[in-house]
Design a protein around this nucleic acid. Structure first.
Lengths: 220, 220
DNA sequence: TAAATTAGTGAGTAATCACTCACCCAAGGG
DNA sequence: CCCTTGGGTGAGTGATTACTCACTAATTTA
């Protein structure tokens, strides 16, 4: 199946989305779709209202400005998009004492790939707008530092003592892992979703490369 | 030096930039700066004209529309930004019979990092707008297929016969290499230019990971 | 039950948008 | 010496923009 399926995004991700008034829900959904497709700046509030089937004024009853609509859309979801370790499924895997780094990375990559296929609009929106709205990048950093860094750091240290990852700073290891994962996810889902991807082979090649790459240097 | 220097971008990249009428040059420079900073859609032609110190009407003397200004800015530069192998300096390195993959990748990474530090506005512009203007992505693909693919493919095959890269499809190897390079360049130059980067260590870690990762599997 | 709060409407507004047009000026060419 | 051509000007245009406001209607609170 070459095309990522278009699924409802917000219901399963936005905190207590179902308890919001229906108008606000329709606005958020329509805004996500239009922002992702045409970009924030090129999407008018009139178009959002029309697509949501509500009066334009209602947008400004629920959100003080168009920009706040963007931030309220993106902020609660940033963590979910970029830091999969916050997911319960992955935490469950990490709770086990995994013998091999490969098992963790494979679960991570497969889970993230499926997640992004389902919520590709959201990833698109974030990747498009993070360069233009420094608040987004900053809140992403804050959430990471406070909520995720400790967990990931101990996990990586564990693999380092097991000599599955060679000695290197935490930030470096994180960067190498994330760029390998994103290097598959972004072209697969966002840039060239219609290519005839050999997805399983790409997953295996990515994991193999990452694991060999992170391993300690072979002693001659 | 944590901050990437802001250098003149177009003089050295745009084909026969110096022969263009001065008004057009000022417009292109101002548009590049503003598009990269605020995004294409959020930049008005009035702001471009003001920043360039020309009348707004002059923009439409030289470019049929605002969008064509964007395309004329981006298209001739896409290849330079994303496909460093077109550069003479790198071609010179490739002309030698390199004994080791590492020499090529190291030259590539260092050259690209320096290039992007100098032209970070341009990379920013392309990364921001490529999601919203399919023409950009398409012309990028075309240029790659016709001009670069053959060279790179033979070069990679050469490394495969030397057993420095294990057996894998061309597209896969290219993707793995590009994501490793971009995974250093993008955070270093665009996302967190002000961090206290240990740049030399990051370069070495990236190369080491990539070379180990691409190598044939160790036989037990 | 009166009052206040909340969801939702849709016409209205001042500002801004991309783009046009009539015009100026200088340099060549016949 | 006229006349075309091309770089450059800046006021003007209709459309679009984000946002406001006076107004229902229904539900909650006192």
């Amino acid at each position: 199946m070459p095309n990522p399926p278009l699924g409802p995004s917000l219901e399963s991700l936005y905190p207590n989305f179902e308890n919001l008034p229906p108008g606000q829900r329709r606005i958020l959904s329509a805004a996500l779709e239009l922002f992702a497709e045409k970009g924030y700046a090129a999407t008018s509030t009139g178009a959002i209202a029309k697509s949501a089937g509500v009066a334009e004024g209602l947008i400004f009853k629920h959100f003080r400005s168009k920009k706040e609509l963007l931030l309220q859309l993106a902020r609660p979801l940033l963590l979910e998009v970029f830091f999969p370790l916050s997911l319960r499924r992955i935490q469950a895997i990490m709770a086990q004492k995994h013998p091999h780094l490969k098992n963790l990375l494979e679960a991570l990559l497969r889970e993230r790939l499926a997640f992004v296929k389902q919520h590709h609009r959201l990833l698109r929106l974030v990747i498009q707008e993070i360069w233009l709205h420094p608040e987004l990048l900053q809140s992403l950093q804050e959430q990471f530092e406070t909520q995720l860094r400790p967990d990931i750091e101990t996990q990586l240290k564990h693999f380092q003592t097991q000599a599955q990852i060679r000695e290197m700073p935490f930030g470096t290891a994180l960067r190498l892992i994330l760029s390998a994962l994103m290097g598959l996810i972004i072209p697969r889902v966002l840039l060239f979703p219609d290519w005839p991807w050999q997805e399983e082979a790409e997953i295996q090649a990515t994991l193999q490369t990452l694991i060999q790459g992170l391993a300690p240097e072979a002693q001659p």
